[in-house]
Nucleic acid binder design. Structure first.
Lengths: 189, 189
DNA sequence: ACTGACTAGTCACTTTCTTGACTATGAGGA
DNA sequence: TCCTCATAGTCAAGAAAGTGACTAGTCAGT
């Protein structure tokens, strides 16, 4: 039941529409969680019913009206409660890891294909996070921003996202190297 | 539907009982996936019905009998199919990230508590993975093992698990440093 | 004699996540 | 004019994952 808390956390700093929250989750502001539009809207509806968020209709011209949500006092209390109970650590859960686990029994060429894809994805994602970090800290250098910046929470989670994807990228590179070296060595013998 | 493939991958190198697979998943051989006993047994039953794994009863003395499973040709084909379709990249999905995202609105002391817990957990997990790696490569040095060792798949995924937990540990440390520095700086102003 | 831990496994239930489709409106380009 | 994309959101159904409780025997320690 952490999706609700992720939604609350996303709404803390700004008033957003469901659509905007969705975007945030899709893009990678969801460096800290991931969810589809349907889940986001459903969760927002539940949160509103429970009084954790308050929505207000905004009439727009030239595009559909929207509802902006903000976190209420109760919502903040809920988040505080969540933060004060132990967080369960996440596990790595990647299809690619399962595939590499079976590497010795599968075709190396196919696997290298998967690794190449994941490498490119990780690289792109890391670059995206890096951009976000730059935007967030503006013209301050990182140390200064972390000490005196207004909101460091999103910055810190974004940094974790960046480093995670960098680690994925490096791991893909290393695994490909090993697989290629073994192919060559296998030929030698 | 990757649990089934994770189970298949776990059974590739050795014939295991459901209980042993469970252990593997619980401990951290599940560096690449995580599942509870109930899920493992249910998946094994399904896989057997579909002919992906074959079980055989082993009568034991002094302890309950068990059923050992091995992957069949069909099971291997299923894994090959899985490896040849694109792997969907995983996202970070940690309670603690959600909590840190909201850091600017929550009590720093409470958060540092969570971070300390996660730090210790990550440290312990990383050490465990490191031990496993040592066991797997025996007296060979890493480069030699990766080039000539019999089975490198599990080694490579375990290395990813270790590095993941190290990254978690380092991130926790950095976040705590930032939060503490800001508390002090806040007091100054 | 009792307690707790380990082996080996199962049932029932709930929550969460994912898939796929569908409603509208307006803007910009071929 | 038609097509596609972006905004803004909803419904229904199903697969996957997680929770809690429970059986039953063995072994080591207190």
């Amino acid at each position: 039941m952490a999706l609700r808390h992720a939604v609350l956390a996303a709404l803390l700093d700004e008033e957003l529409s469901g659509y905007q929250v969705t975007k945030a989750f899709a893009a990678g502001v969801a460096n800290f969680w991931h969810a589809l539009p349907q889940q986001v809207y459903a969760e927002l509806a539940k949160l509103e019913k429970e009084g954790m968020v308050a929505g207000r209709e905004v009439v727009q011209e030239g595009r559909p009206n929207k509802r902006l949500f903000r976190v209420t006092g109760e919502g903040l209390a809920e988040l505080e409660g969540f933060a004060s109970t132990a967080a369960k650590p996440a596990f790595l859960r990647e299809d690619l890891l399962v595939q590499v686990q079976a590497a010795d029994h599968l075709d190396t060429g196919v696997l290298i294909g998967r690794l190449t894809e994941r490498y490119a994805f990780a690289e792109a994602k890391a670059a995206l996070f890096e951009e976000q970090l730059l935007r967030m800290r503006g013209d301050l250098d990182e140390a200064e921003f972390l000490l005196r910046g207004a909101r460091v929470g999103p910055y810190l989670t974004c940094r974790r996202g960046r480093d995670f994807e960098r680690a994925n990228r490096d791991w893909c590179r290393d695994v490909m190297e090993v697989l290629r070296a073994r192919q060559t060595a296998g030929g030698e013998v």
